[in-house]
């Protein structure tokens, strides 16, 4: 191993490890606190909020309660995140194919419009968006979140995918054309397999942004039964008398799905990030 790290002092690593661990411990503190707080009832909590208590007196019913409370939120959020990112990617791939492969009449105009919309800060949109959804009778419905979620990701996705598809070898498409593939078949058989990594990364980004969103759900959803995770947690926090144990358990359960998903796709995600970063 002959690299720059050998050049540094031999015994300096322990200092680095120490500092890194300081960072890491403080950063992971919330996780620990959630865990240890989740098994206490309010009396325990008031006595000693931040230090763990003996396992004998752990109140597992907090977890049962939190689970029952949070599970519908999780299913709703899963529903919204999966459908909106799937729709977003599907439509983006089709549009990116259109712009990347052919320059039809009006293509350039449409593409400039797309690019212009990328610069549009969407902060001001939420107010008219709310009224629009009201007119479309989409308020209080998860579908509103799915549709808006699919729409807001489009521009970025189409931009990235278009650049990627332009770099795919043209004669591959032509061979498929001669073989008799329709445009959709070309997308399915050429674009998707060859763009798998970037589609994966974009899907994850879309999924995450939908999962963590709470602003739009907050103003759109009214029925408790259709709450997504974000709104559910907000209302949990807003209750007057806080059942800390249950809340902590709820927070932890709310974190579980992402942890599970990431355990399965972590290697892909880190590799995708690094690849993108090095190129940029």
């Amino acid at each position: 191993m002959n690299d720059h790290r050998q050049l540094a002092g031999q015994d300096r690593d322990w200092a680095k490890h120490l500092i890194i661990w300081c960072f890491v411990v403080i950063e992971l503190l919330p996780l620990y606190l959630m865990l240890q707080g989740s098994v206490k009832d309010n009396a325990d909590f008031l006595r000693s909020p931040w230090l763990p208590i003996v396992p004998r007196s752990w109140h597992w019913e907090n977890w049962a309660f939190a689970f029952r409370l949070v599970l519908p939120y999780i299913t709703n959020t899963l529903f919204v995140a999966v459908f909106s990112s799937a729709a977003s990617l599907a439509f983006s791939i089709m549009a990116a194919y259109f712009f990347a492969r052919y320059q039809m009449p009006f293509s350039r105009m449409l593409w400039s419009a797309f690019l212009a919309l990328m610069l549009l800060p969407s902060v001001a949109n939420i107010v008219p968006l709310f009224v629009l959804l009201k007119h479309l009778s989409l308020l209080n419905s998860l579908w509103a979140l799915i549709i808006v979620g699919a729409a807001s990701g489009q521009i970025f996705n189409v931009y990235v995918l278009r650049n990627f598809i332009e770099d795919l070898p043209r004669d591959l498409f032509e061979a498929a054309e001669i073989d008799g593939a329709t445009h959709l078949q070309q997308i399915v058989n050429i674009v998707i397999p060859m763009s798998a990594p970037i589609i994966g990364t974009l899907s994850i980004l879309a999924f995450l942004s939908q999962w963590n969103d709470f602003l739009l759900p907050l103003i759109v959803l009214r029925d408790r039964s259709s709450f997504t995770l974000g709104v559910g947690l907000i209302y949990l926090d807003g209750e007057y008398v806080k059942q800390w144990g249950q809340i902590m358990a709820a927070y932890f359960i709310a974190s579980l799905p992402l942890i599970v998903i990431f355990l399965f796709s972590m290697r892909l995600f880190v590799r995708g990030l690094s690849a993108g970063a090095v190129k940029g």
Binding site: P169, D171, L172, E174, A175, A176, N189, I190, P193, M194
Partner: peptide, 9 residues
């Protein structure tokens, strides 16, 4: 084709 244009997957 010159570059064979085989479906890589």
């Amino acid at each position: 084709f010159q570059n064979y244009a085989l479906y890589p997957h």
